[in-house]
Design a protein around this nucleic acid. Sequence first.
DNA 1: CTGTTAGCGCCTTCAG
DNA 2: CTGAAGGCGCTAACAG
Lengths: 342, 342
Amino acid sequence: MKSDQITIVDIANELNISKSTVSRALTGHANVKAETRQKILELAEKLDYQRNMQSLSLITNKTNTIGIVLPEFSTSFFPQVVVGAQEEASKHGYSVLISQCNESYATEVANAKVMLANRVDGVMVSLTKETLNYDHWKVFIRKKIPIVFFNRVCNEIMVPKVVVNDYDAAFHAVEHLISLGRRRIAHLAGPRQLSISQKRLNGYCDALTKHGIPIDQDLIIDSDLSLNKIKMFVKFLVELENPIDGIFAVNDPTAIEAMQIIKKMNKRIPEDIAVVGFSDNYGSSFAEPSLTTVAQPVREIGKTAMELLLGLIGKDMEEWKPIIRTMEAKLMVRDSTVRSGA
Amino acid sequence: MKSDQITIVDIANELNISKSTVSRALTGHANVKAETRQKILELAEKLDYQRNMQSLSLITNKTNTIGIVLPEFSTSFFPQVVVGAQEEASKHGYSVLISQCNESYATEVANAKVMLANRVDGVMVSLTKETLNYDHWKVFIRKKIPIVFFNRVCNEIMVPKVVVNDYDAAFHAVEHLISLGRRRIAHLAGPRQLSISQKRLNGYCDALTKHGIPIDQDLIIDSDLSLNKIKMFVKFLVELENPIDGIFAVNDPTAIEAMQIIKKMNKRIPEDIAVVGFSDNYGSSFAEPSLTTVAQPVREIGKTAMELLLGLIGKDMEEWKPIIRTMEAKLMVRDSTVRSGA
DNA sequence: CTGTTAGCGCCTTCAG
DNA sequence: CTGAAGGCGCTAACAG
């Protein structure tokens, strides 16, 4: 059944005037006799008239819709980014089409197609952990549809990006562990293809080096952000001849999973092993012990990325400067490294 | 700058054939000479041609877009529902327009307008805690745009709904506390206008009554789902002359907040006070102690609501049965009520 | 101030 | 099998 949508023609017929007058009254772009305008507006209101954006976008070649493509929805990070982004978008009259990829590259490609089909005016993208090929995003460039990457960005495409100071934050996190006297600090690293993993790893290495601690490759464990193998990794690290006394994990879920295992192995946190995570996800503050982690300004990230994106729309491509906006992430010291007085 | 979108005309000109032929080849609805079709398809592929859905929807009066309106994005519940819903939608060729309301009624009304303006083919809605008036949703009915409510549903509108067995789950949760010998069980209730709050409250009351425990109004605290006043409430309950030995909270964040306060007051959980939450949000399993709670099949809820909604599209309104689909929520017993062996 | 006309991109008749 | 013509809802010229 087709739904009952009121059109300008309906209003024009009802009032016995021309469609153009109705259109003018509704848009306010031109002059209409006050009395006529009044009548039109009233009837429109009464009939819940809604301008058909589809036909409008046919004319303006704009949809006033922004696509947001995200790798996952299982932690609080991306939903919170969406909140910030959406707030900014709606402030400027844009709607938001959201797709979540379940960390699957194939889904990301499919979602890119959906965005194209929906003629979004721009896309805000964070890549899945599997993504190594960026052709599906290059199509957007070719079609002059602006992109802004955030968090998990693509270095091959020269567009604005929003990131946090991952390197510095990781560096400080590890220095924090060192300042507590830790010397055998392991890193549960993320997938190498993600620049955030790389930067956090670099921060880890450089902090160790700065403080004269040799980098032990055995203590750098590549995980894929899934939690299945963490148990094995942590067991290995704890049972080393020269066991670890600190862990810096690439994200909070990994850190928390590690903590659970450490506790089961009857080691104390932070006394035996201090643990630091990354992101300050929902739940990290009430884990036991509460997790020291790097807090990212989530909503700000979304807002900033959306601001940059909206700024690109309507500009010539030559003006798309590949700005990299770096937001401040800050270490939150909690009980997993320093016990607060009970 | 208008973006470079390829149209059927571009392809027709390039190949020196008529637009209608190109259209036919692209849709596959009619006969085109194999050779011509081949040429058209190849060129379309090469140019990244994407059918303009806007113009299509002008003709079909369908957008193949579903709106999802959510009260909040700050716990893991709604994002997970979205995952299930989106999976189902994309399986049927629908995109998803998502709006989150920050628990604000005004935003909900605005978001409803956005959905209308975008001519969504249907909406999946969960109400904010403030919503008492449903006129903005009744407009959809008047326009014959199908709605499915889920979780926080609206009883005034006769459309399909997806809920969990809140009453039973609450009843069992409280019986669980009673079976542990608790007799002074408090309920941190949600806003009364939400049917879920009401049902959970009823479950609480009936469980007590069944076991001959009088209902003490002092032990029923109305909260508004924000966490600000929880401290005061819990302090009150713990310092009562006849203090509590159990808490059933309307949701997990409330329960966890209560636990933090109880711990600060140097009461033991579960020995002194056992705590039960509702929803099994992300983080509840690694809180200390891990929280006994009612797990809801989140993705299933999203999937089911979307299925019902898609089933409504294209049907006459008379066929919209106000089915209420009740999903199974189940009690997850954890350390906040029964300590597992360390 | 208002009506008429054309056209956005596409699909669906209707004629060949 | 293919081309031409009309129209979806709306706006932007162009005339009055």
